[in-house]
Design a protein around this nucleic acid. Sequence first.
DNA 1: TCAAAAGTGTTATCCTTACACCCATGT
DNA 2: ACATGGGTGTAAGGATAACACTTTTGA
Lengths: 321, 321
Amino acid sequence: MDHQATGTGKDRGAIKADEVKVDLIAVVVSVNDSEPCVLTIGQADTLPSGPFALEHRSPQSGLRGWVEQQTGHPLGYIEQLYTFADRDRIGAARQQRVIAISYLALTRKEQAAGSPKCGWQSWYEYFPWEDHRSGTPPVLDVLRPHLIEWADGASDTATRRERRQRAAIAFGFDDRHWNEELTLQRYELVYEAGLVQEAASRRDATPPPLVAGKFMVADHRRIVATAIARLRSKIKYRPVVFELMPPVFTLLQLQRTVEALSGRLINKPNFRRLIEQQELVEKTGETTAETGGRPAQLYRFRHAILDERPVAGTKLPLTRG
Amino acid sequence: MDHQATGTGKDRGAIKADEVKVDLIAVVVSVNDSEPCVLTIGQADTLPSGPFALEHRSPQSGLRGWVEQQTGHPLGYIEQLYTFADRDRIGAARQQRVIAISYLALTRKEQAAGSPKCGWQSWYEYFPWEDHRSGTPPVLDVLRPHLIEWADGASDTATRRERRQRAAIAFGFDDRHWNEELTLQRYELVYEAGLVQEAASRRDATPPPLVAGKFMVADHRRIVATAIARLRSKIKYRPVVFELMPPVFTLLQLQRTVEALSGRLINKPNFRRLIEQQELVEKTGETTAETGGRPAQLYRFRHAILDERPVAGTKLPLTRG
DNA sequence: TCAAAAGTGTTATCCTTACACCCATGT
DNA sequence: ACATGGGTGTAAGGATAACACTTTTGA
């Protein structure tokens, strides 16, 4: 396969046309006290990241290095999320391509004390419309008219209809059901509608009519949205929640963690049965009285299950509402 | 986030340490006469690919360009598969990093006549153990003893047990069920067991005891395995099969396509009902007599469904066996 | 005693699976 | 007539969802 030369003489700054900088970028997730969190650096608006360098054995190991250096956190479970490579990812003006390979990492907060300027931010600060554990969040009523206004601002009828449809599906308007996995679609809509600060840099400098959720640098918030969507779908078909749990835990703690991630309440009795009948966990024999109320059985994850059969995750036996 | 310099003075050939070549690589899939095919160039052992260059607006558009140039095929549906970036991806000796962003593309063969040296290869030529439409394929009986031999070749008991477990789960040994989505795990096993030609280059030049399936260049066969696994799982939760269908089709043609992809037979009556009740298709009103037997209703995909609600794919109502 | 959390049991409903059977056409 | 594919009906079994109810602790 002979690829002919692709440089077109446009080179500035003596960079060969087909060489590229690669950044590794991490969405590190933990759940603390029923709040799902991402690890940030700087003004809580930046994800840990760093260039992929020759001495890195693999991108994963490079990522571990950068995150540990920038935040003091060692990483356990890592999976690749998506590779972002559009031309104007960083600065459209510069004739240098920057692509970002993003990863989702799952840990627990306790694994190490924080270091330099870094911290855990609840992901619902960036996506306040995503938390439905206490019913439909108020922001949604604020967002709705703005989204409709944006939809109706389209020039032709077809686009208007299509925009209203997209918004209705993604946000569950018009008596549709809320689907927690559509996090990315929802972020894209509020972005397109110009309702987040990040959208302002693309347009003429008119400030957005409404700033929904906390700002993040560049496209980091989109990357977090991608991670949330992936995680919300993945917990249902692979037992990854346990990466976020301490070695022993009660079933209610497990439930609260799943609820935190999915942003929805689930039915306790049914949840317990699902977990137990799948043999994902086993009793330690101990109980704890620290939860208030009747002492709870402590469980641990049955790592052995991973060697026994391809194993599903935790379905969400939702409570109606 | 100030990333400190990462170059270590090891540079050869004046390449800055953190610049990287990026290849775009495509697994282009179509289904012809109930055979799932991938588009190859060269000796039917290479996937279409090319470097990501500055003039490409996005990696997707770059990929379209390369594939069209190398094979004459325009691409429709594209999705990102995975980014491969391990140090020794191309040549461990060279101090140049090459990463590959891989994509899955779905088309139909008819869309354009082939061009230069390219062609459609049934993917079961590369993965003969993956086709279970006529029952368990004979290769599996050949592979099994070799896999067991490999497992028992491990030095310690723990590894031996673990290898046997992995093989049993992935291939459905010991009365386990066949799981068509484990294509990548299966390829990794035959690779690790040294049963494919590709594995030879890593080891001392001893030829493999058994060459299972057709060879592909570098890690292209692994990339195809990744694509098959992704597609087999994706058709179940998103209606992507229709990208592979002509504009109008009979329900049996649709069924044969799903069967070709999943490598399993499915139950006709139940399949029809699933498809129809989900309103994924609508009758054109026409019938065709070209299928032999009673003339069949022709259907078309209801594109509108995509705007109506988040829509699932085609479950597999398997026939027992 | 009450609140809070831990647990158990039971039922209705829906989806999946299995399978028996009839229909329409060409040879 | 029969082979081939098209197409319908139905019933059993399992998974899910809903919810009523009991138990055990601490304040």
